[in-house]
Design a protein around this nucleic acid. Structure first.
Lengths: 344, 344
DNA sequence: CTGTTAGCGCCTTCAT
DNA sequence: ATGAAGGCGCTAACAG
């Protein structure tokens, strides 16, 4: 059995030093306290020899900071959120922080639980992609004093700092492309009605049409969920319309998966029978039956900026230059939009 | 400003009770200590009124358990791991555990760091999908006494408990399908050579051929990484062969993405120009240019079983019925395998 | 340059 | 039926 020191006191005894000295050396304060290099070395060697690593729970209790960050995500299995989580974890790890991950299952109640849990666990800060429109529990958490950054969407009627995609601009790009290609009757299958990411995209959808003098058909804006099933159901509805659109603008990757399923069931092809542009670029987008034109959100950037922003809130006393951001997405044009030479 | 009790002592004072009593009530021990229901109610109401939630760091220090589990994953952005992580988080949350997530970036060194970090953070247990073949750091962690379960692959030469897919059976199914469809020249693009998930799949590949009396061509087994680039590079190599195979068996979802890219660059179609079966079912598998035949791993089951197993190790004193499992995958047949009526 | 002491918030033993 | 005191492992204030 390897020799083992379970705590700083044990190690100090074996080394015939005080816990204080050991603590100082291990925390890189040898210089500050002018600890002799002999002693320092002894501590380092001892720590290795006795396989000692400080108890970060005790440390957290004493220091009142845990170097732990909470991350609350509506669905970690969705690769969009998975990539963001990855970036955040990697950045955090570089800076000595650990991530406590919570999956809210797109439920506000679970989200609230998670928030409370993280408070109890004394996370130094929280990054959250809110599940719904309700923001009270989030605002309350922040008012309890825990640094907090919102991602993916922002919460209107609050001052919570956020990092999101510029969803309005993304929708505008997508729609302008569709219109340029000659489409006039374009449906929009949306996500949860009322959350900013959705509202902004729908706004972009409407404004793009307006700019080109195309009337907005209310029946063409449908759906209420970012999931696959919603994409499927709404597409079935669309296909039964008297005047079906020539194109669909899908407001999430999951929605477009549902669209593809419905289309396939009916033996319909993209783009010949239906054109399609979708939010959220995915690794498989180029390899679909019809390579898909997508709006790519800057996932890495979102993760990085959110982490940096959170760190700034945690560390800076003057909270004046806390600055929320909407990051620009990118339109990736492939083959899923059919070209009409004449207006239809 | 809302009234607030920051710790149990403050709350006890406001309630004119001792911290002991408050603690007992809040931990559901009213019965055991025969605390009057009046007092109990006062504590519950007070906790809510003063928005008190116990400091779990202090609790962890005292109790020497944190109700925290570590989860180390090679790439959380990969939806295969994302789903597993989701299941584990959700199950853990139900049972009062939180998950500290670490992404090892497929690097053994990062993995070792993460392991040490989790030990320092006094996680009650760890679930790990190892990044490589090296297992010493993992075994060491376990020998320090931290309960540990390995997923996705197992580590030979160790007794570490594991939950994995039955990779051998999965490969066998895939190959039998290919062979039944008339293929004789089948390449296998593998992942990291030497880790069990890969070895078992290659073994299945070989055994299936052997059973049917088909000679194994060593040149047909190529590659050394589960990533997209490996799939791409090996496919390019395959296409330049004098006697190229008629089918490729891809040992991961990322590898098949690379295969699709290489094929597409050459203007080759699945399955007419090349048949394909891939490990790892994905939501988009049905919607690819050619709907893909895949081996689906039981991701939810892996997550659930791994969590339950870990819990058992944490709680049970007698570690005798700790039982590792290889869970059966499922072959999902679609259109990516061309039928040959005669042997080729 | 090094050590002693006190206390972070909690739970548990012992006391009443 | 309730409380007082001690200690989990650590670090910072105070000594020297």
């Amino acid at each position: 059995m390897v020799k083992k020191a379970n705590n700083i006191k044990e190690l100090a005894e074996k080394l015939k030093l005080s816990p204080t000295t050991v603590s100082r050396v291990l925390n890189g304060k040898s210089k500050t306290f002018r600890i002799s290099s002999v002693t320092s070395q002894k501590v380092f060697d001892g720590a290795r020899e006795y396989n000692y690593s400080p108890n970060r729970i005790a440390r957290g209790l004493k220091l009142e900071k845990t170097e732990t960050l909470g991350l609350i995500i509506p669905d970690i299995a969705n690769p969009y959120f998975g990539s963001i989580a990855k970036t955040i974890e990697v950045e955090a790890h570089k800076r000595g922080y650990s991530i406590i991950l919570g999956d809210s299952l797109e439920e506000v109640s679970t989200e609230a639980e998670l928030l409370k849990l993280l408070t109890g666990r004394k996370a130094d800060g929280i990054i959250i992609a809110p599940a719904g429109k309700k923001s009270r529990h989030i605002v309350e958490a922040e008012q309890q004093g825990i640094p907090l950054v919102v991602i993916d969407r922002f919460l209107p009627d609050t001052n919570l700092p956020y990092i999101t995609t510029n969803n309005y601009a993304g929708a505008l790009m997508a729609m302008e492309h569709l219109i340029e290609m000659g489409h006039r009757n374009i449906a929009c299958i949306q996500g949860i009605n009322g959350i900013s990411a959705n509202t902004d995209r729908v706004q972009g959808y409407c404004d793009a049409l307006r700019k080109k003098g195309i009337a907005i058909n209310d029946h063409y804006i449908l759906g209420n969920d970012f999931g696959e099933l919603n994409g499927y159901n709404q597409t079935r509805k669309i296909l039964k319309m008297h005047h079906p659109p020539t194109a669909i603008f899908a407001l999430s990757n999951l929605i477009s998966l549902g669209i593809l399923r419905a289309l396939k069931e009916e033996g319909l092809k993209v783009p010949d029978d239906m054109s399609l542009v979708s939010f959220d670029e995915q690794p498989y987008s180029p390899f679909l039956a019809c390579p898909m034109t997508t709006v790519e959100q800057p996932r890495n950037e979102i993760g990085k900026e959110a982490f940096e922003l959170l760190l700034q809130i945690i560390n800076d006393k003057n909270q004046e230059n806390i600055i929320s951001k909407k990051l620009m997405p990118k339109l990736i044009i492939r083959d899923s939009v059919k070209k009409f030479s004449i207006s239809n």
